[in-house]
Amino acid sequence: MPRSESLGQFEQLVLTAVVTLGEDAYGVTIHKKVQELALSKTGTLGAIYVTLDRLEDKGYVSSSLSEPTPERGGRAKRCYRIEGAGERALKQSIATARRIARSIEPVWGDPT
C-alpha cells in the first residue's frame, strides 16, 4: 500500500510532467518537460529514472512497455501514467504551495 508522504520538489516536477504528457510520458519526454517546468537544465535523464522508480514503488505512477519503434532502434518505451495516490499527493502539494504563496504575499508581495 502506498504510504502517505509529501512529495519532494523534483518528484512534483516529474509527476506534473507525467500528468501533462498523458500517454506520451516516457523517459525522454518527461526529461524535456521537467526542464521546461523548472526553467533550467535541472536533473539528468538518470535522475528522472531514479525518481520514476521511487514514485512507482510508492504507488504514485504505474508503467507499461509500448510497441518498439524504428527511431529508437527498434526498442520499446516504458510509458508512465499517474495513479490515484499520485494524483492525491500532487494535489496536496499544489494546495500547500498555494497556502505558502498566500501567506508570504503580504510580507514579500508577489513572490514570483
Binding site: L45, Y49, L65, E71, A76
Partner: peptide, 9 residues
C-alpha cells in the same frame, strides 16, 4: 529496452 531506446532517441 527502455533506457537503450531513450539513449538512442
Amino acid at each position: 529496452e527502455p533506457v537503450l531506446g531513450d539513449l538512442e532517441e
